[in-house]
Simulated scan of single mutants.
Amino acid sequence: MNNNCHCKIFRKLFLAVIVIALAGCASREPEVRTVRVEVPVLVPCKTQAVTVPSWVVSGLKKSDSLEVKVRTLLAERRQRTGYERELVAAVGACR
């Protein structure tokens, strides 16, 4: 009989807690607020394509003198440096 009494008290207490919880939720108005969220968006890169120059070394012949070959290689080195700078600038413009 004692267990039955505890069960009735527990049920009444449980129902009272649920009623209080529901009453608390019902009396509160929802808070409306605007939140600004900044999200990064992918944007297509709009740069001109870097054209590959015609390398001066491609015009060398085996019969050319050593001086001509060295000058041609130095000229191509300058060409490559300029080409690389154009590529770096194009990539930098897309960041």
Rank of each mutant, 00 (worst) to 15 (best):
N2W: 00
N2Q: 03
N2I: 07
K8M: 12
I9N: 02
I9S: 02
F10Y: 07
K12N: 13
L13E: 13
L13C: 15
F14T: 05
L15A: 09
V17Y: 02
I18Y: 01
A21H: 12
L22D: 15
A23E: 07
A26P: 03
A26E: 12
S27V: 05
S27L: 03
S27M: 04
S27T: 04
S27F: 05
R28H: 06
E29Q: 05
P30I: 13
P30C: 02
E31M: 14
E31Y: 10
E31L: 04
V32D: 11
V32G: 08
T34F: 15
V35Y: 02
R36W: 09
R36A: 06
R36L: 08
V37C: 06
E38L: 11
E38R: 13
L42C: 12
V43Y: 12
P44Q: 15
P44T: 13
P44G: 05
C45N: 10
C45F: 03
T47S: 07
T47E: 09
A49G: 03
V50W: 00
V50L: 00
T51V: 14
T51D: 15
T51L: 12
P53A: 15
S54H: 06
S54M: 08
W55K: 00
V56F: 04
V56D: 00
V57H: 09
S58W: 01
G59S: 07
G59I: 00
L60Q: 00
K61A: 12
K61H: 01
K61W: 11
K61E: 05
K62G: 04
S65I: 04
L66H: 14
V68F: 07
V68G: 03
V68D: 12
T72M: 14
T72D: 09
L73W: 01
A75W: 02
E76Y: 00
T81I: 12
G82M: 02
E84I: 09
E84V: 10
E86G: 01
V88C: 04
V88Y: 12
A90D: 05
V91D: 08
G92T: 15
C94A: 08
R95K: 08
R95Y: 04
R95F: 02
